[in-house]
């Protein structure tokens, strides 16, 4: 089952530059929450704070509180955090030296699963969840990089799902994909929310409208508006939100 996330006064820096200003928001469990906003508004940084990836880059700094369910995310070991908060990146990044099978199995193996048949079962299950199994079942041991971009991205989703996280962060997962692959990823997100809490960063407002239960609008590192997707796209409370979603800027 998914977990809720509570963010309180979250601030993040790149060196001297403050990229997130005092963000506070509650993300509901088993819902899809879209993060929208123009380039450089801090939306990627925001979700990268939720699996503690932001602090791994040189000069990345975070302050504030993030709770996963009731647990303080920043009091946990970062490696443990990333096991329960999975991430799918903007560009498909299957591990290039590994086969399709190994890409999904690696997380399980590191988690201590050694049994071959159990591994295969879990890999199949994850690939099915990512709607990729039928396309790759006959070539599991072929290089992952031989797949198409859309398939690679679904493989990355399968890889993230294999370790059974509670939250799935998606950083513009469809921005490098063609329309058909995009649609498949969106369908997938809708199916996955039954089991996971999903946060998805997107540039595409139609995408947010199609799949998100709630939407957060970021601008210049601030959370401008956060609420029910339908309300936000029909009756935005803030003038800046309205300007953005009607295409006046961004």
């Amino acid at each position: 089952m998914g977990q809720s996330i509570t963010v309180e006064n979250l601030q993040a820096w790149y060196g001297e530059q403050l990229t997130l200003r005092e963000i506070s928001m509650d993300v509901d469990a088993n819902q899809v929450t879209a993060i929208i906003g123009p380039s450089g508004c801090g939306k990627s940084t925001f979700i990268r704070c939720l699996n503690r990836l932001h602090e791994t880059i040189p000069q990345g700094k975070v302050r504030g509180r993030v709770r996963l369910g009731t647990e303080d995310l920043y009091a946990m070991d970062p490696v443990d955090v990333r096991r329960v908060v999975g991430m799918v990146f903007q560009k498909p990044n299957p591990f290039p030296t590994m086969s399709i099978y190994e890409n999904v199995a690696i997380g399980l193996k590191l988690g201590g699963i050694r049994n071959k048949s159990e591994l295969l079962d879990r890999v199949e299950q994850s690939l099915r969840m990512a709607a990729l199994w039928d396309e790759v079942k006959d070539r599991l041991h072929k290089p992952a990089v031989a797949l198409s971009g859309g398939q690679q991205q679904r493989l990355c989703i399968a890889r993230a799902l294999a370790v059974e996280p509670e939250v799935l962060l998606m950083d513009e997962p469809a921005s490098a994909l063609d329309p058909v692959s995009t649609l498949r990823v969106e369908e997938l997100v809708l199916q996955l929310k039954e089991r996971y809490t999903i946060l998805i960063v997107t540039h595409n407002m139609q995408q947010a409208a199609r799949i998100a239960d709630k939407t957060a609008f970021f601008l210049n590192g601030e959370l401008i508006e956060y609420g029910d997707t339908t309300t936000m796209f029909t009756k935005p409370a803030d003038k800046r939100t309205e300007d953005y979603i009607t295409g006046r800027f961004g």
Binding site: N51, T56, V81, R82, F89, N93, P94, L110, C156
Partner: peptide, 19 residues
């Protein structure tokens, strides 16, 4: 991109380097 893929999957620094 690949290193973050590993980190994001919950690999330790040494696992990222090795795997």
């Amino acid at each position: 991109l690949y290193r973050e893929g590993g980190i994001g999957l919950g690999m330790t620094n040494w696992e990222v380097v090795r795997k």
